[in-house]
Computed example of a mutant assay.
Amino acid sequence: MTMTENITLPTNTAQPDRAAEVQCTGIIKSFADGTVALRKVDLHCPSGAITVLLGPSGCGKTTLLRCIAGLETPTEGDIRLGDRDITQSDPRRRGVAMVFQNYGLYPNKTAFGNIEYPLRRARVPKDERRERVARVAELLRITHLLDRKPVQLSGGQKQRVGIGRALVREPAVLVMDEPLSSLDAELRVSMRNELRALQRKLGTTMVYVTHDQTEALGLADQLVVLRDGRIEQSGNPEEVFAYPASTFVAGFLGAMNLLDAQPLGLPPGTIGIRPEDLVPGHSAGALTLTGPVIDTDLTGTERIVHFRCGQQTVRMRVRAGDLVPTDITVHAPADRIHRFDLEGNRIGVRR
């Protein structure tokens, strides 16, 4: 049974004192080698919600997460947790707990010992430690694994232990650094659903880092796209996907076709069309694209068709069983075309 099927909090389960909002203002982070990882980042993570930081490797998302957790200190700017300034606070006293990408488990300790460890360091009395570990283990459905060491656990079980070690601290904020990246595809989907259900049950504020757009869209209440140490766009995931603020967001989130507008008889700039928004055949008043098919990729129930339109390559989605001709003609309805200026910024209002 997975947690998504039936999550029941054990009697007297300790909840966080309160879920706290996180406010980062003017965060700059420079390293000794001259690398600037964050460039005046302003970020608000709402209380009790999941904020997902999304972007390619090197965009600054993990550095920002580590600043919130206290594992890095900003060069400039401040971080507040609720009404407290935690910029310089000891990580153990912030009310922030972190789940790492590689689980971070001690190989010589049992699952119980790993979950208990932060409480032992905090000099929590033994009886209270046992009680809190038992509550968290029951919540995560790993009570039967508490005597096992990490080498005896599967990837998903190790991740649950890592999450348990964070939750046992009863944090106001839980931060997670690509915690599912080492799991296989099927388990990632299952764990993603479980994480979302767990967060909804506990009401904890969560800040989650990933480079996987499917994971980001599936988890986020607020989606924040980073690029080169800056926030490129933030908002609810439906809004960010439907109305990308730049060609970078459009290309990174959903792999939109980004085409030079001038060769298509349009004003200078870039037009964006998602592969799923292209429709076979001509249509009066719509932008028509035509050209030879150069490749196809089977993705399961769908097929991605690549064709040339002038000097540009265009992708469209069709059903896997559809006949793909040698030459193709498609049109893009006007309300499905995204327009960007020469600097790559969105033109016009929402559709």
Rank of each mutant, 00 (worst) to 15 (best):
L180E: 00
L253R: 12
E194Q: 13
G254R: 13
E186V: 14
G218I: 04
R188P: 02
Q262C: 04
T270E: 02
P237H: 14
P171Q: 00
H211D: 08
Q222K: 15
D277Y: 06
L289R: 10
Q233P: 02
V207G: 04
D260E: 15
I271Q: 04
G265T: 05
E232W: 10
P292Y: 00
L217G: 06
E239A: 14
E178Q: 01
E178A: 01
G203I: 09
E215W: 06
T299A: 07
R303Q: 09
P263W: 13
S246N: 11
Q233F: 10
H282P: 01
L187C: 07
P237F: 14
K201N: 06
I273V: 15
R160Y: 11
A245E: 12
A261D: 10
G272L: 09
T296Y: 03
A166V: 12
S181R: 00
V189Q: 11
D184M: 03
E239V: 10
E302F: 12
G269L: 05
L195G: 07
L289Y: 10
H211C: 06
H211K: 09
E276T: 02
T247Q: 02
M176P: 03
I231K: 06
H211I: 10
D221S: 08
R196Q: 08
Q233C: 07
E170S: 14
A166N: 08
E194T: 13
L226E: 07
M256Q: 10
A166I: 12
S246W: 09
D260N: 14
I294M: 03
F248D: 08
E239G: 07
T214I: 13
R192E: 03
G269P: 03
G251P: 03
V225G: 04
R165D: 05
I271M: 05
H306R: 15
L298S: 08
L167V: 10
H306I: 11
P275Q: 02
D184N: 11
V240G: 04
S190K: 13
D221E: 08
T270V: 15
T214Q: 13
S182K: 00
V293R: 02
D260I: 05
L264D: 09
M256N: 06
A172S: 15
R160A: 09
P179E: 01
D212I: 13
R303G: 00
L180H: 00
G254C: 08
G251T: 13
P275D: 00
M206D: 04
N193C: 10
L219V: 03
A166T: 13
D297W: 14
E170C: 05
A172L: 00
G251F: 10
D184F: 03
V189P: 01
N236A: 08
P263A: 13
A166W: 06
G300S: 11
A197V: 15
L195I: 15
V207N: 05
N193L: 12
G281F: 01
V224C: 04
N193Q: 14
V249L: 05
L287A: 11
L198H: 09
K201V: 11
I271V: 15
D184P: 02
A166F: 05
L226D: 06
L264Y: 08
D184K: 04
T210L: 04
M206R: 07
